[in-house]
Design a binder for these strands. Structure first.
Length: 361
DNA sequence: AATATTTGACCCAG
DNA sequence: CTGGGTCAAATATT
């Protein structure tokens, strides 16, 4: 029963998310076109409702969500991710906890997860219009049952140097080969992953513009990669240029920001970093042909809201993907799990966030 | 030489 | 036992 509820909650949330995404798109259209203030207001309200619904849903679940406060500085206190870490009253777990048996796997399991759906047009590919701001290193590829294309696995280039455990996997869509599902896991704790954010004390934390900042730099680099990849693809027809070219250096924008989530409760000597980076980076805005909603991410700014900024993310089942992907317009929906208090929303009706989140197991 | 990718082997949860 | 995810030796790039 526990699981069942989770599942249902997952799909429920998916629906809400979808609705919210659609509302956002609608808003965009209204913006571009001539819109009345009343119209904007309506859309805003609709979005607000979705947001609240999502939050309520999450709170209805007696899980972690504890208090955002204390976690902030905790290196290992780790606000147990919403995952059912403790959910399983198995005694073994307890026992094993003591022994630091490479709980690495355990650690990974707890990492937040969310999926993005990105459409890549040959043009954008050539232009190198994308990149989520991080550098990834491919560490594996696997043919997935039933899937037409292989899945590629990437991990942060700085895993070892900075103990950054973020990873992502890229799966080309069967139906629409121009779409890639990118599943991210874990938050980047590395620092220069995203060149944009210059050392200067985050000056632009105030709002929307940081968007542009990131975009530039990497693009060029990126394009090179892409070209070389394409070349490879051309000569290595073995697999039919499918995956590799693209999968290889791709990263996209939409990803939103970092989540906080502290997953390294165990050894990680640098656990300290966690806090800072929480949202250190925003992926590039990504001006996709159909993605006008580039600038939102208002919520991304942690400080903007007092909450410690703890977010955790993950998407539950695969169902979600489908639902989300439904809307082509290149909208991505990073999923976030906002952990701040509900009040926040109430106080600030304009508050909006692109993401949504929920948990799963 | 240093770093990144390719790939089959290996691990483990279901 | 099977499939998904990761490791790591062999290669390929830079």
């Amino acid at each position: 029963m526990e699981h069942r509820w989770k599942r249902e909650q997952g799909t429920l949330i998916s629906e809400l998310i979808q609705g919210m995404e659609l509302a956002k798109q609608l808003r965009v259209h209204l913006d571009t076109a001539s819109s009345t203030e009343s119209m904007d207001l309506l859309v805003q309200k609709i979005l607000s409702s979705y947001e609240k619904a999502l939050l309520i849903l999450q709170f209805s679940r007696p899980m972690s969500m504890g208090q955002p406060q204390q976690n902030v500085g905790a290196t290992s206190g780790v606000p147990e991710s919403p995952l059912s870490i403790n959910g399983s009253p198995r005694s073994d777990d307890l026992d094993k906890d003591n022994q630091d048996i490479r709980d690495v796997s355990k650690k990974r399991k707890m990492l937040p997860r969310w999926t993005d759906h990105v459409r890549v047009t040959s043009e954008s590919l050539l232009e190198g219009t994308h990149d989520d701001g991080y550098s990834w290193r491919k560490y594996g590829q696997k043919d997935i049952l039933g899937a037409k294309y292989p899945r590629s696995y990437y991990r942060c280039t700085y895993r070892h140097t900075q103990d950054c455990w973020a990873t992502k996997q890229v799966q080309r869509s069967d139906e629409d080969p121009t779409i890639f599902e990118i599943t991210y896991r874990g938050t980047h704790t590395c620092v220069h992953g995203n060149q944009p954010v210059p050392p200067p004390a985050s000056p632009e934390k105030q709002e929307y513009k940081l968007t542009n900042l990131n975009t530039n730099n990497n693009q060029q680099l990126q394009s090179q990669d892409i070209l070389s990849n394409l070349r490879k693809g051309l000569r290595v027809n073995t697999e039919g240029l499918d995956n590799k070219e693209m999968a290889t250096s791709f990263s996209f924008p939409s990803t939103s920001f970092g989540w906080l989530k502290t997953e390294n409760n165990s050894f990680s000597p640098s656990g300290v970093l966690d806090n800072n980076n929480i949202l250190n980076s925003f992926p590039s805005p990504f001006t996709s042909p159909a993605t006008p909603e580039v600038n939102y991410f208002s919520a991304s700014q942690p400080q903007m809201n007092s909450f410690g900024g703890m977010l955790s993310t993950q998407n539950s089942e695969p169902d979600l993907k489908e639902l989300i992907s439904a809307n082509t317009s290149a909208t991505n929906s990073p999923i976030i799990d906002l952990d701040f208090s509900l009040d926040q929303v109430e106080l600030d009706p304009n508050f909006q966030f692109d993401t949504q989140g929920f948990f799963s197991s």
